[in-house]
Design a protein around this nucleic acid. Structure first.
Lengths: 227, 227
DNA sequence: TAACGACCTAGCCAAATGGCTAGGTGATGG
DNA sequence: CCATCACCTAGCCATTTGGCTAGGTCGTTA
């Protein structure tokens, strides 16, 4: 599926041998084309493959062994899988740097991504055109690149002793129902479990997300791309 | 693949008469570059200006009088202003077609945008590369272009008699506090108003958004890009 | 085997919320 | 001048919620 996009790449022309080989993972065509266009303005960058699903990312990295993987963690309906991909890539290919390119800023996601080996985290809306190239160069020099506002989040999370825990499937299910405006009882009926269990899952989710009210749970879950 | 032939910003006056003159409004560089790149692959499209703020959109339309305005309603922190821009453009320049390019799908926003004269509504994540060109051509032919899932929303809203009302500034303020997990009392203190007023605003917001619980209010407000 | 995590259930009580009626002000514009 | 709208306040009451303790099963993994 990514094979034909690879043939699109103009490798021949005046590309120096020292060019950085990049794989882009994003479900959004416009973003993929934009990234490719911005990167290939600068010499020294070559986008060698694009991926639009979690499996395709792994395949592309396996096949091309790129220098840099630029990835939007939200490739489907579950950002958590994006985190797993980051972990797998950095573990199996230590020389491949991972730069996360996110739509939104969530402390949980940022921290988790960095913990799993990402060497950069930028926010799409905040990034300037020239920052991309600079960021990638910096990453290749061994630096960690954090976009506007990301640094603060990281600092904040370092201060707290709270370990970031990830939500279970069931917890996310319950939160989805909460977001639809259902009451505890209605959720219990919809999920074939007891009221107590619904409250149990929400209590745990509250703790993990650092929230104290259902509205905040939903807000944070949305920000984290969990819904 | 004449990707590289587009060197610098091609101004309208240099383009052939038959080409569609387009203005892009989006705060995201990557998206702007991507759009430009995709559109200029096809002959017949010329991106003559880009804008990243509400004021800049109006200025650009005033100056260039484009055939099509492609706009992401969320250019700042208030999607409502994006709606106003759509209204102003379609009112003052009936020949300029407006195509909304959104990140998320919200019934309220879709309906409001169409009511104010938008002739198309696409969702960034769902749109395919070739759909963009086709969509713009269709729009120029007088059609209304609705992306995947958008049609259903519109149909659904036609069924309901409920008139879409927009939230007031105060209501949005309160919702923002709710999203942060504050209680009624805490919000009252933070906003220097009484508990009753907080509940009053939330009741009104509930009605307007069709929600019955704070969590759902937050969810819908986020989806509508109001936060 | 034991430990662990995800999952499930019960009950308690104070606090918060949802939904309602019934008022008030000030600014704006037909 | 009157209507409209955004904004503000009060009180009532049933329901929901947050926060807690205290159990249980099942499957996986050390």
């Amino acid at each position: 599926m990514d094979r034909e996009t690879r043939s699109d790449v103009p490798l021949g022309r005046r590309m120096p041998q020292a060019s950085t080989r990049i794989v882009i993972a994003d479900r959004n065509v416009i973003t993929r084309v934009g990234l490719r266009s911005i990167l290939e303005r600068n010499t020294g960058f070559a986008v060698i493959a694009e991926a639009t699903s979690y499996d395709a990312v792994i395949d592309a990295v396996d096949e091309h062994g790129p220098d840099v993987l630029i990835i939007d963690l939200d490739l489907g309906d579950d950002t958590t899988r994006g985190l797993k991909v980051v972990e797998e890539v950095t573990e199996r290919y230590p020389t491949t740097k991972v730069l996360v390119l996110a739509n939104t800023l969530s402390e949980m996601i940022v921290v988790e991504a960095l913990r799993r080996g990402a060497t950069g985290y930028l926010c799409k809306d905040d990034v300037k055109a020239d920052e991309l190239g600079k960021g990638i160069k910096a990453i290749q020099d061994g630096e960690t690149v954090l976009g506007k506002g990301v640094g603060n989040l990281v600092a904040h999370s370092l201060g707290s002793t709270r370990q970031t825990e990830h939500l279970t499937d069931r917890e996310i299910d319950v939160i989805k129902h909460v977001a639809k405006g259902l009451s505890t009882k209605q959720i219990a009926v919809a999920m074939f479990i007891s009221d107590s269990t619904v409250k149990f899952h929400l209590q745990n989710a509250s703790r993990k997300l650092g929230a104290h009210r259902r509205a905040e749970i939903v807000h944070r879950a949305v920000a984290a791309g969990l819904l």
